[in-house]
Design a protein around this nucleic acid. Sequence first.
DNA 1: CTGTTAGCGCTTTCAA
DNA 2: TTGAAAGCGCTAACAG
Lengths: 344, 344
Amino acid sequence: MGMGPLPEEQSRDRPARLRDVAALAGVDPSLVSRVLSGATGFSIRPETRMRVHRAAEELDYRPNHAARSLRTARSMAVGMVVPNLANVVYARIHAGAAERAAQVGYSLLVATGPTAPLARTLYGRIDGLMVASATSDAGPAGDDDAPTLPTVLVNRQEDGDVPSITVDDEEGADLATRHLLDLGHVRVAHLAGPQNADTARRRLHGYLRAMERAGAEVTGALVAGESYEEQGGFDAARELVTRDPAPTAIFVANIQAAIGALAALRELGIGVPEDVSVVALHDAPLARFLDPPLTTVRMPLEEMGRRAVTMLLDYLAGGDAQRIRVQTAPQLIERRSTARPRAT
Amino acid sequence: MGMGPLPEEQSRDRPARLRDVAALAGVDPSLVSRVLSGATGFSIRPETRMRVHRAAEELDYRPNHAARSLRTARSMAVGMVVPNLANVVYARIHAGAAERAAQVGYSLLVATGPTAPLARTLYGRIDGLMVASATSDAGPAGDDDAPTLPTVLVNRQEDGDVPSITVDDEEGADLATRHLLDLGHVRVAHLAGPQNADTARRRLHGYLRAMERAGAEVTGALVAGESYEEQGGFDAARELVTRDPAPTAIFVANIQAAIGALAALRELGIGVPEDVSVVALHDAPLARFLDPPLTTVRMPLEEMGRRAVTMLLDYLAGGDAQRIRVQTAPQLIERRSTARPRAT
DNA sequence: CTGTTAGCGCTTTCAA
DNA sequence: TTGAAAGCGCTAACAG
């Protein structure tokens, strides 16, 4: 190959290369590669392996990602797109995903914002992408002129054969609604999320299902809202309670909207839970410090995150596009925002 | 070089390489490289440049990151470590950083968790790191056995010549405290953050400075707390109001702790702002939906994020370690949690 | 059990 | 104004 400086001497402070390790251990670079990358199904004398490891440690060897990626055509990293960082839901999904990714030796890179531009930034740095934006701002990576990247949808599901993983939002909504029904409420309202998010649609279905099973009538007056945010929840709650007949309980599609709803009811002088009970989907550390402490339904988000990674890796390995629904049961966390209706 | 298949025909669906573009344009790969990477200071016939661009577009050419990194020894990406994703403060810092990174053609990768393991995951994928964890869980990247990566501290400052960028927490705290003082409060307390976070220390100083300038006495009874979280704020507020003399106003070191504090006061039947005024550092969309809507001080976090990137890039380019304090003035946002003391 | 070899896709001297 | 050549650090056949 005609190298210049002999590798015997380690030069300056430049990070050690495979070749340097090999030289120090007195073996060939390819051997070092096999040993250090934990390749299996080849034989080596234990003593040689030892020497290699020792040399690597000695030189504080760290494989060069770029070289490895170039050679193997894989980056050993996966990406995750979330709509924004300040959100417990995504934080929990991410936590699960990060845990699993670490377990299997992958790096997990996060990015925020609209999917398409991100796919462009991340392209070439990751092998696959998890899109955890609930609303289809830009479908799976590949829209407009963004490069196509193997993608799984997390917490969202779409027509066609796009792989996806979701939790059982319908069951969560059903559980929340049933809680209200069981307390004796009849006019149970739903403060819904944006209907372009399929989680919101599934929560609405869950609500309707529970109401129907209980034989409770659902009129248009009982459903309002189009938002997962505080302000939207505030506005919708205001509207809801002025309708006729007024609900005695509200199932809110997510916790942020519920915070807005609580504020609206407070401002109107409507007591929670004396006048109106409130329960929200998704739990957060914050919930118990609200006024009143908010009853919530906790979803298995970490598990979804973990399984999303597993699923993406399977998909990358040539598996086919699955649609997984995490079946772990949602969990009701009773706090002080729900109670029996005033005049049973 | 003795390649196998002629590059004339583009093969399968394999992404186009530089070589393919060159073949299509009828020029040498090196020329394509120069043209497409926007290199400057070389001459080329406009027509040739045109042909190259057209060929690249035609083939939907996208440079291979790994190859480029391997060759140039730079990844054109920077990383940012945040302690957790569910936090407005980091979300805003990140937003600013992402904006600037995009402007200058860098990718910004985010990761969460303790710094050291992350530095290991990110090592080789990024050229430099912004550490935005307020508390020194593990100092700058490089502790224990984590690899060393050029690092700037964001929203945190440390002894030695570690580059860092911060906002003026002291001024923010001073502003909040002054607001209380100006309203006529005398026994103004401080619910402090964890004193291993230098932001918390600087906020404490700002509080002390404002008190001193106003000639208000600060006894030990007026300072409590060691947390940036709801529960910590809850506990500390409880304690604070039982002290003698009880404060009539509290400056809380951050908004999460303030949420806990509000809950505690509510539980004790202490009216806000009738009995006790509360102001917190850092604003959030949530603030106006709290009970009562919370007066806050908004810090220039996006700007800090933007400048952090600029600073890191300068540092990478060989600039020396700076310590920047963003001087943009904090902004008081008055809502309903502060008022004149009961008996002026 | 270990070594040789070729080359991933790109950039950058250097030469024409 | 353009082309030729070398090689970044690694891995995966294939030989020995």
